[in-house]
Design a protein around this nucleic acid. Sequence first.
DNA 1: TGTTGACATTGACGTAACGTAATAGTTTAT
DNA 2: ATAAACTATTACGTTACGTCAATGTCAACA
Lengths: 251, 251
Amino acid sequence: MEYTVNKLAKLAGVSTRTLRYYDEIGLLVPARISSNGYRIYGRNEVDRLQQILFYRELDVPLDEIRRILSADDFNGLSALRNHLAALKSKREQLDLLIANVEKTIKAMKGEIVMSDKEKFEGFLKKMVDDNEQKYGKEIREKYGKETVDHSNAKLLNMSREQYAELEKLTDELNETLKLAVESGDPGGELAQKACELHKKWLCFYWDEYSKEAHIGITQMYVDDPRFAAYYEKIAPGCAEFLRDAVAIYCR
Amino acid sequence: MEYTVNKLAKLAGVSTRTLRYYDEIGLLVPARISSNGYRIYGRNEVDRLQQILFYRELDVPLDEIRRILSADDFNGLSALRNHLAALKSKREQLDLLIANVEKTIKAMKGEIVMSDKEKFEGFLKKMVDDNEQKYGKEIREKYGKETVDHSNAKLLNMSREQYAELEKLTDELNETLKLAVESGDPGGELAQKACELHKKWLCFYWDEYSKEAHIGITQMYVDDPRFAAYYEKIAPGCAEFLRDAVAIYCR
DNA sequence: TGTTGACATTGACGTAACGTAATAGTTTAT
DNA sequence: ATAAACTATTACGTTACGTCAATGTCAACA
């Protein structure tokens, strides 16, 4: 049950370079180093590598894979369930693409005419789907299936102008949020402006807005490392700040 | 029907940088450059971009996409059909992965026990599938469905030792081939050795060997740019050389 | 008319996830 | 004992862009 680099590499169908790289970035560290300096992998590493490859298959960056696998609350089983859901979602997306290609073939045979927009439909849906893949399950669990489906449906039905508007709103929100965090006061003017923008932003996805849901989702931004990471990129401590600000905003 | 970078980028869901990069590498050149130096894309470019994204979706390197799209015999319709087949093949692979994950979940719940080898089954099958994706259709068309299916089935059923043997044989074949090409004589000793190795190599995939099929497939190595590229990497003019050598070998 | 803001351009350097030598020590097989 | 097959580290190359930076252009508004 002990493998050297080559053995494990062949078993898993990856290169030895890959294994050394994973060691280098601390993603998959050998169980031990033998006296001659060779990397020795054991059962645990085999399992971990399997997990890694699963996520890699989904184009999850190695950085994030490490985070996922080392999350405090990491639970192999639930991670796999999530993974399974993601795979199925990917398959649905593939089905969309396949349908699009079939449609295109028909279009080329002159049977139908496709608009420029339609030509990229598979890819647009893919974007929605990526979103779904990342956050769908959690949101679904917390806010119910209909909310999410509705949200996606809304996104798909948006016109180009609406989409542009959403993009603009997003930028404005992020900018305001950044300044607000710098100001440091969750009850301040900037922060409350950010809350309002965030509410508007949410209403792009939601059909009905409630203060409880607003508070709930900002709490989730704090709890879920994926959301947290997103907001952390805007400003340090941003998720917490937004949660606190929204708590005041909704009072 | 005319788009500037930003317009086309938003339409297709890619970045403007991507479009400028595609221009830079000659993959998607604008229809014209307006007087102010702006890139202007038209209907043709929209279609071409759609094709590009299709292939990109399949992780085909941009280099190869360009080759595919610019092949002399390129036929949009048949390319799309090929693309469709590839997508469907990808979906099948996904199904395998999904099955594997489900199995893993069961294993984690203690219902079944998986061997180390089984743990990577989805990925091994993926390799077969990649092969299939690349060459499946052409071979299928020329040699019939059963030959290919059999070939894949054989590959999947191979034991680890057999697999190692195949790898070794492949290396030996490539090495001999390289030397043979350098010698320059298709009828020479080295070349004929290479032919024999190639025959052995083929027999790893085929159930029955025939001289005609051997000659046929080496001809295809010359005709099909994808195979040609593979052999070109071993030695310049390698595909042609092998074809000529095999013609002598089978006489 | 001047200025502003949203566009466009070309460099040019950064990045992720390895591939691919080059060089050198170790183990295994004949 | 010597070759073949493995291991190691170091280091530069590659693909497909992301991300500034510096600069130019265009439409609109005060």
